[in-house]
Computed example of a mutant assay.
Amino acid sequence: MGNSQSAARVVAPLSFLYDFSAQQYGMFSKPNMLDVHNRNLAAFSPYPYFIAGFFFPQQIFQLVWLWKLWKSDGTPQENETMGRFAWVYSLGNVCIGTWMFFWNSNDLKTSNVFVIINTVAQLAYISTQLPPLDTSSTPNVLTHIVSKTFAGIGVLDLLHNTSAAYYRNVPPSSLVQIATGLGFAAAAGVSDWIFGGCLVYDLVALSVGQEGSWGRLLGGYAALTAGIVGLRNWLYPRYKKSQNKSREGYARINPGEE
């Protein structure tokens, strides 16, 4: 495990630099990312500047997380958590960095392969490998933020690239519209504030990027998803806590009835 963590401390920053360099290429080359986006509009094309608005703060969190990973001055459990995620993180950076070259070449079907790999890897990690959130642990909190924002924007990337690669200028069918609402609602029902917030952001970006009734429906889905995330993470825990207190009070008053 020690050798693996030592390697991760080197590989993760290098993967960040690779992805960051590829993003600069994507922005300043001709055609650039936005040019390709505008040529391939589809039902899940977001408003492009929402992507930039997401990546800037996310990269700040990544840099802080990388600094903590490099220092490795946490507990053994914290270091192990960061080291384990570092490999998934590095895979994601390599995939998204490589995606850029195919996207800017307008080879969207090939670029979609890298999007699928990244999104599946990030979702698999946060759903099966990520330990519970511990707000008293900075490395744990940072790992939750970085991994869940990676997965959250990955959902948008997957919808966007797939629709642009295979369904350019094709309006969403009724089935697609219903499935979109059900899918995001189901995901929101099992999401915390971090990943759930990313899902809401995805839908807002899509709603602003689309027009007409589909754009308005996506906006409604964003509000619904936000409501479900809030219900699950704020209202329901408080209701459950109050119910537990009521049961404890009843048990103290009627100890013989237990």
Rank of each mutant, 00 (worst) to 15 (best):
27 M>N: 10
255 P>R: 09
213 S>P: 02
105 S>Y: 09
121 A>M: 06
155 V>F: 06
74 G>N: 01
203 L>M: 04
96 I>R: 00
194 I>L: 03
183 G>K: 04
41 L>R: 11
213 S>V: 13
250 Y>Q: 12
18 Y>E: 10
244 N>G: 13
47 Y>W: 12
205 A>P: 09
85 F>I: 02
95 C>A: 15
194 I>K: 03
82 M>N: 05
104 N>F: 05
251 A>R: 10
25 Y>M: 10
5 Q>M: 05
28 F>G: 02
167 Y>P: 00
205 A>W: 03
244 N>S: 15
133 L>A: 11
1 M>Q: 09
202 D>A: 11
23 Q>M: 15
2 G>K: 00
235 L>P: 05
152 G>C: 02
81 T>G: 04
235 L>Y: 08
57 P>Q: 11
117 I>A: 13
173 S>G: 12
214 W>R: 00
50 F>C: 11
152 G>L: 02
57 P>I: 12
131 P>E: 08
115 V>A: 10
218 L>Y: 01
189 G>D: 12
139 P>L: 03
135 T>F: 14
257 E>S: 14
150 F>Q: 12
255 P>L: 07
13 P>V: 05
114 F>Y: 09
110 T>D: 00
108 L>T: 05
180 T>H: 04
254 N>K: 14
217 L>T: 15
97 G>M: 09
3 N>K: 04
139 P>Y: 01
221 Y>A: 08
117 I>S: 06
258 E>H: 03
257 E>W: 07
105 S>D: 14
120 V>D: 01
258 E>F: 06
190 V>T: 13
148 K>H: 12
246 S>V: 08
18 Y>W: 11
173 S>A: 04
225 T>C: 14
118 N>W: 00
35 D>I: 03
92 G>L: 12
8 A>R: 02
145 I>Q: 03
220 G>Q: 14
164 A>N: 02
157 D>G: 06
79 N>S: 00
111 S>H: 04
223 A>P: 07
255 P>E: 06
88 V>G: 07
80 E>M: 10
98 T>Y: 12
151 A>F: 01
116 I>K: 06
12 A>E: 12
81 T>D: 06
76 P>T: 05
105 S>N: 13
22 A>L: 09
51 I>G: 11
19 D>Q: 13
49 Y>W: 15
17 L>G: 09
40 N>S: 14
52 A>F: 10
101 F>K: 03
151 A>H: 03
178 I>A: 15
100 M>L: 14
35 D>V: 02
61 F>L: 11
127 S>F: 08
114 F>E: 08
126 I>G: 08
21 S>E: 04
